[in-house]
Design a protein around this nucleic acid. Sequence first.
DNA 1: TATTGCAATATTGTCGACAATCTGATTTTG
DNA 2: CAAAATCAGATTGTCGACAATATTGCAATA
Lengths: 246, 246
Amino acid sequence: MSGIDFDPIVDTTRRAEIVTLLKRAILTGKLEPGQKLNELRISEQMRVSRAPLREAMRELVQEGILTSIPYAGTFVIEVTAKDIEDAYSLNQVLDEFAIERSWPNRTAQFYAELDRRHDAVKQATLEVDTTRQIETALQLHGLIYEWADHSLLLDTWQRLTSRLQMYFALHQRARNEPVPSLDVHEEYVRLLKGNDMGAAQRHAREHIALDFEELVAFARSLEGRNAIDMAPTGHNGANKQKPIDT
Amino acid sequence: MSGIDFDPIVDTTRRAEIVTLLKRAILTGKLEPGQKLNELRISEQMRVSRAPLREAMRELVQEGILTSIPYAGTFVIEVTAKDIEDAYSLNQVLDEFAIERSWPNRTAQFYAELDRRHDAVKQATLEVDTTRQIETALQLHGLIYEWADHSLLLDTWQRLTSRLQMYFALHQRARNEPVPSLDVHEEYVRLLKGNDMGAAQRHAREHIALDFEELVAFARSLEGRNAIDMAPTGHNGANKQKPIDT
DNA sequence: TATTGCAATATTGTCGACAATCTGATTTTG
DNA sequence: CAAAATCAGATTGTCGACAATATTGCAATA
């Protein structure tokens, strides 16, 4: 056997690159929730035809961060407090499962990777790039999913991650402070190295809860603000879309 | 206020119809696992250009029932025993959560819908259409997700459902017998109407276990057969793809 | 004045053709 | 003869143009 494992060649199709660019723009908040994606404008900016752009957008619609209305347009999803609460509660359930499944798979390599990602988190707190902090924190958190040996679970987690990253980015864009509770990771890592699975699962519930309550409160405040904005004009119950364009 | 709630107009875009057709073909097993989807041939058969077809395929790739390799093609996903086991275990976790969340939402309308879908299941057992039996069973099962008031959970379940439907269809295509354990639904419905949430959750675990063990055994037998088929030619560890075409 | 009808415009959906890439057989070469 | 190079065919990826649909502004009308 050849002893080296090669990584697969980067699949260089325009579509894939567009997906990456769009996703980054959405997850970092450069494309705001509710914003419409004008195909012609984006394709011209990217120097690409509309075909691969549209295919990329289809993927992101299915990924759950875009929403499409036929003949009307494709929009960045809106973020409600309930959405964040839902992501939170589902995350709790999945975390518990992921810990259970990854628990017997914790090898030396797992612990090494755990430390590596934990270091990356600590490193990111020193930098100015706020999105980097979010990324590293989510990657640390995703380790148990990658080691759960459960492709469906990993898929589900990655879909969830997209939303989480978007929520955190929104939160940070609004308030210019770093994401809360970064030192709690110390305890999280320690428990993942220990022998008490139940304790790790319980901590995951609590630890995440802290982050999310901050987020939910933030989303609530946003909705309150919107409600005030709409109060004067408010005729019927239909929620009007603000037509922000790309 | 106008007292009537109108449903939105059906969005009739070619892409959406193609998605429906392709999905049905895959979930009923007309398109077999591993099979390649030839864009030109399918677009000619559907009397449609490749653009909307490709967009539809992108959606199904993201939905998890197709897989795409750049410049090589798009294929129906392969089904391994592990895939089925994973779907099973994730379903257990999600079911427990869905029951918890839908439990306080059980109104009269819920019970009515529960009975309606249960009747549909019983009705389907009398018909010859086997795929109909699968559909009705899954719809009965999906009720708790629809009433959980949790869009992310519902999304996740629907993705899972696609795979489940495919697995069951495969099973039925191989053996010409109806899907097992149809009378167990009686107990399931009874418990969902009761007051013991824990009992309902436990039953969901057991009840589904029965169906799945049959499926996993079936998938195992398939893999065993493939292993035998590959034994003579087997050179290295790479699993060769049988190039079935549309 | 509020509503309806209609043209003008912008944007999305779809099409057919071309470019890039892979596959397999054939030829060349050591 | 085996292995590498080459070439034709098929298929996927991308492009520019056209068709279908929605939106906007303005005029007509009750």
